[in-house]
């Protein structure tokens, strides 16, 4: 059974079909890339799945539960973690506190007024930080971290509620090639280990071709291709609207 099913999803902004009748599924443990030109509807699709936008029509299912129009925080409670295109952490907190917040929330302890938050779930938070290689930075203010490290913290936060699905909006945006590779390798290892499914958008074709199990392509709001790396690479339509000649990215043989 699919972890996530998107059924005939549509969204219109001021008469323009941003997303037009899009359907796809993600199986358990699948690493699915969503690519397409700027303005193709990737972000809109993404934001409908994570709850920031309500679809005009169509449905989104987590397992067999419809989440269309649900608030992001309720979707999270169903086991959907996410990372942002511009990494978002709580700048006024330390690294470990950032992860603790997610754990406290997961345990429904947010309204606690008495016990100091810094003492709650610290062990578990440190474990998660160790898994993303950031244990050493646990007590540093998160605003002081380099960008690549902030992305790792986000990953630890996203893993805090044992998600079954991870939504990653351009996970490697703003990173150098080597950092990109390290981060995606890390994500891949963690999700394989835990059997998490991942839906991610990405502009770095190196990353997409090297790591995605399957690729779906959006253009002008419609799904124009769905297949593995080889099939997508050879798809004439995708070449025309998205890849161009391909000389600005590396053609990695897979």
């Amino acid at each position: 059974m699919s972890v996530l099913s998107v059924r005939s999803l549509s969204k219109t902004f001021g008469g323009v079909h941003a997303v037009n009748d899009v359907s796809f599924d993600i199986g358990k443990g699948e690493f699915l890339a969503l690519i397409g030109p700027n303005g193709a509807g990737k972000s809109t699709t993404f934001n409908m799945i994570n709850g920031q936008l309500t679809p005009d029509s169509g449905d989104i299912l987590i397992g067999d539960k419809s989440i269309a129009g649900m608030a992001p925080r309720d979707i999270w409670r169903l086991g959907v973690g996410r990372t942002f295109q511009v990494a978002a952490t709580f700048g006024s907190m330390t690294v470990v506190e950032n992860v603790q917040m997610a754990l406290i929330s997961h345990a429904r302890g947010i309204l606690g007024l008495w016990r100091p938050a810094a003492s709650l779930h610290r062990e578990r938070a440190l474990e998660l930080l160790a898994q993303v290689g950031m244990a050493d930075a646990a007590d540093r203010p998160s605003r002081e971290l380099a960008y690549g490290d902030v992305k790792r913290i986000e990953l630890a936060i996203a893993l805090a509620n044992d998600p079954q699905l991870l939504l990653m909006d351009e996970p490697t945006a703003g990173m150098a090639p080597r950092e990109r590779n390290d981060l995606i390798k890390l994500v891949k290892a963690l999700v394989v280990e835990r059997g998490i499914s991942v839906l991610f958008t990405e502009h770095s074709m190196d990353v997409v071709f090297s790591y995605a199990d399957r690729i779906i392509v959006l253009a002008r709001g419609r799904l124009i291709a769905d297949g593995n790396a080889a099939a997508i690479r050879d798809n004439a339509k995708v070449r025309e609207v998205y890849f161009g000649t391909g000389k600005t990215f590396q053609e990695t043989a897979s």
Partner: peptide
């Protein structure tokens, strides 16, 4: 070239 599609990069 940051954050734009390969076609635009070209």
């Amino acid at each position: 070239s940051e954050g734009v599609a390969p076609l635009i990069v070209e």
